[in-house]
Design a protein around this nucleic acid. Structure first.
Lengths: 201, 201, 201, 201
DNA sequence: GATGAATGAGCGTTCATTCAT
DNA sequence: AATGAATGAACGCTCATTCAT
């Protein structure tokens, strides 16, 4: 209710939108609620964003940027001589980590209907282009090093992303069997994927 | 607009709800619209369902029943001497098939927020119990036959379900890279999972 | 603010809409204002009318019915042997009288943009069909009696309606020179029209 | 979006307002839209006009000036010895022409509610003073020449203006019977008025 | 077993306008 | 001479739900 201080209103809006997003899901984010959170009028949001769609897209873009930055950082932080397979696994774990730690971003990035976020799927082929590119690149290097099975890098990247997305979305929606340890399920998933991807021995 | 004849109103409501679900997505299903489809008043729905939530839950239950029936049927239709691994793969493909062919059910069963479908995850352990049980059972048999890696059947079942869910949900949300053949991605996913599960040779 | 008693809500809505119409013009009639006048919620209007457009159209239809009834009544009240020219003048004065006494109806019937009242002009050829027919009929009889100039009855009817509309709308919009007596201007207009229509002697 | 160059902003605003006026009708002209058209902020309009009302009034004044200029030009262009009756008809046709060709001006000059254009009718006597004066003057000359019926020139001018306005406004609102030729209806109207005004032979 | 009538909350959006700079 | 930032009021409309009948 209280105004957020010196932060630019645009940033406050995005922040509030994320906050609402993670609490209630996309469809429960409304201009009025955002306004209430930051202590402004709903009208004022329209000064900074053309409409709700543009606001959501701004969040999506933000999310992709953050994720790509994190994934790249992970690769940079690895020792220069890290073997390609380890890099792939690190990338996979980085993706999952981003999803679990940023449900508000992850949801709008990967869990919304295209119709809800106009033209998202139509404008961009597949998931976040840059993170996809990174995955493809890593696999290609692993293949050149003779470490993974001979297969289409684009295809493999898509498959792996889909499988990891399955774990992330089930975790975020609390659909994982509550009797199991979520971290162990993740280890199991990644273990399975790695084995499926690598050369037999 | 025309009343549906001798079908019980309860069934008509569920039918109409499914119809709207698959056309407009979950959140666009409203009591009004359902009523309009079947030619009754919105009020009359409340005679058969306490509220919207209960209606959605009825649909979810319907979905689970249909899915379990289909998955069991698939097992029954296999020759009695089919080896356990083949059975696992058949089960996996059956699950994916159900999701792709019944997006209206699949979405409310596995893609909605718990808040949207009140307490779903809290009340029931994990995903659809019976289909989970089937998966676990199949894996156990395969393990007893020495065909799959030694691992927790519950855990494996959860992992596999998550990974398959990833493919299904990405397909339903049109998030698969449009330059790839969706069927081939599915083959790739299943291939990967199988290899990850099976014993090395 | 107080509820209107036993009158059906539908009628109350229409009544309130007319009231607002005459006070503020069409564009200032809002669902909320109507609701406030009759002491109901804006929502309840939607139980009786699909949307604002349908409400306005209901008013338009009402207006046409009232006007046609009045014009027919005027003709009936004239002695059976009234000569056709007198009948024409009576009809003209009846039209003007209706307009001046029912500005709320007249405005939506004849002074709104077609885009404001969707497809009004497209669906119906010319002004209110039945009143137009009456005018045409009267003129034809006068022509057959050899009292008016030989001319197209439809055309004459349209011209006369336009000219009378000019007076009515200027009067309603307070655009008549305030130094003149409005009634005398009307007499002058009708005088002019009659002379223009009649045979020279 | 692009700024209009060296034209004074005041003129740009009026120009843009006219453009919107003719496209969308009076009530759809908003400060925001005007600003968007000329590439300035809505706020900047308030530097040049006290408020929207003043802006509209400026347009009305503009319209009157243009119309009077055109009507005077028409009279000047006639041969010096043109007879007064011909001059009256030319003036009438000039008025109609202006209305049909400048709907954006005509609408705000003669078709808006007084409340919409604050106090217009109260402050100024009748319609556009100068064009009224011209009409009166022309009639007086015709009367002095013994060509028109003995009548109050002010009154006649008002009547004629009203009748012509009827045609113009019906034409602009697309309320003329679409089965008739609009030009012929106009000829008919003017024919009728002339005959009503002139001396019998 | 179903309807008629109504509600209150909420939605995204647009508007004219203001005020400090 | 113009902008940036914001407001408060209003708009048409949809929603799940209730209650008396």
């Amino acid at each position: 209710m209280a105004k957020g201080g010196k932060e630019s209103l645009r940033l406050q809006i995005l922040k509030a939108a994320r906050k609402l997003l993670v609490k209630d899901g996309v469809q429960n984010v409304s201009m009025r609620k955002i306004a209430a959170v930051i202590g402004y009028t709903a009208t004022s949001i329209y000064y900074h964003f053309k409409n709700k769609d543009e606001l959501i897209h701004a969040l999506i873009d933000e999310g992709h940027e953050i994720m790509v930055t994190q994934l790249n950082q992970i690769q940079e932080d690895l020792p220069a001589d890290t073997d390609p397979v380890k890099r792939i696994e690190a990338n996979m774990r980085g993706f999952v980590k981003f999803g679990l730690e940023n449900p508000e971003y992850y949801e709008i990035m990967y869990m919304m209907h295209s119709q809800e976020v106009a033209d998202l799927a139509d404008e961009r082929p597949g998931i976040a282009p840059k993170s996809v590119d990174l995955g493809i690149e890593l696999y290609k290097k692993a293949y050149e090093a003779g470490l993974v099975r001979e297969r289409d890098a684009e295809m493999t990247s898509a498959s792996v992303a889909a499988m990891l997305h399955g774990y992330i979305s089930m975790a975020l929606l609390h659909r994982l069997d509550s009797r199991l340890d979520a971290d162990k399920v993740l280890d199991d998933v990644i273990d399975c994927i790695m084995r499926g991807i690598l050369l037999p021995n």
